[in-house]
């Protein structure tokens, strides 16, 4: 899946050599791989507000990267740039080493990128199956399908199967989403993204509304997605959850990446320090801790 693009055989990412101890990914093999997704120098302004000021993000194949940062750091904005919901003012996005533009959500989908949005982006008056298949409905075979008729039976059956296998507890997949609890809705949004993602899964606070058990279940889902070879970008304010499931942590502060930590060596002090700006990593001799962007911003 992550065959390096012939156009770009030698990506100049964070030099993997010499970082074996705190390499970007725990799997030795992927440490040398081309990032499946790489953002650099992303700028996005809303009027006077600069949401992203040269933000960066690196995601290696088959890893879970946590993107953490304070409220308003630009995490959701970064996610929306990747999923084609908004267009950056400047910057570069590479997928498997190849520069891409993601002008709309369909482009992101074609790249195998799926998103759990912070606001879930569900249609509350539709049922879970309709939400699951939104934008990629199953049509009836033959003429009826050409006329725009949906194969609701097939969609319903596949939805039952998908949500069932993902452990999303929905009693009645024919009920409107609006009648469901916040946790169930989040489960539907997560299930939808997991079901379709085949390269990168972006999750913007997927556990915000979840109880302990459901949070655990999302964690297991993340692990399952990773083991299927799909990389996960996880945004969460729940640091214990991040520490449990992330292979690496990238810290965003005021629209810039300020630290990249390996999950194995990161401590809450490090992460919190980077989030609040109390700690800077300029002096870090450890390349994994180096804010790769510090040169770009000056």
């Amino acid at each position: 899946m992550s065959t390096p693009s012939p156009a770009d055989p030698a990506p100049t990412g964070p030099a993997p050599a010499g970082t074996a101890s705190v390499g970007p990914a725990p799997h030795g093999a992927t440490a040398l791989a081309t990032p499946v997704l790489e953002l650099s120098g992303i700028v996005k302004s809303y009027g006077q507000v600069q949401a992203l000021r040269g933000a960066a993000l690196t995601v290696y194949p088959g890893e879970v990267v946590a993107l953490v940062g304070d409220n308003g750091a630009g995490k959701s904005t970064t996610i929306k740039v990747i999923s084609g919901v908004i267009q950056p003012d400047a910057g570069e996005i590479r997928v498997d080493g190849r520069p891409v533009t993601i002008p709309d959500p369909i482009a992101a989908r074609r790249l195998g990128i799926e998103t759990v949005y912070q606001d879930l982006a569900l249609a509350p008056d539709l049922d879970p199956a309709e939400n699951l298949f939104l934008g990629r409905e199953i049509m009836r075979p033959g003429l009826l399908g050409k006329l725009g008729f949906l194969d609701r039976k097939a969609m319903r059956a596949k939805a039952d199967e998908a949500f069932g296998s993902l452990g999303v507890g929905i009693q009645d997949t024919a009920a409107q989403v609006v009648t469901m609890s916040g946790g169930q809705r989040q489960g539907i949004a997560v299930g939808r993204a997991v079901n379709w993602a085949d390269r990168v899964l972006l999750m913007d606070e997927p556990t915000a509304a979840l109880g302990v058990v459901q949070t655990e279940r999302v964690g297991q889902l993340i692990q399952r997605v990773r083991s299927s070879g799909v990389a996960v970008v996880l945004i969460s304010h729940n640091l214990p959850f991040v520490f449990e499931y992330a292979d690496r942590i990238e810290v965003l502060r005021l629209g810039q990446r300020v630290a990249r930590l390996s999950g194995a060596t990161a401590t809450s002090e490090n992460v919190l320090g980077a989030m609040t700006g109390a700690l800077t990593f300029e002096d870090a001799s450890d390349p994994a801790l180096t804010p790769a962007d510090s040169e770009e911003q000056s």
């Binding site: 999923s83 919901v85 709309d104 959500p105 369909i106 989908r109 998103t115 949005y117 606001d119 982006a121 569900l122 249609a123 509350p124 939400n131 939104l134 934008g135 990629r136």
Partner: peptide, 9 residues
């Protein structure tokens, strides 16, 4: 949810 529609393409 018009935004959900948009994000679904």
């Amino acid at each position: 949810n018009v935004e959900a529609a948009r994000r679904a393409g």
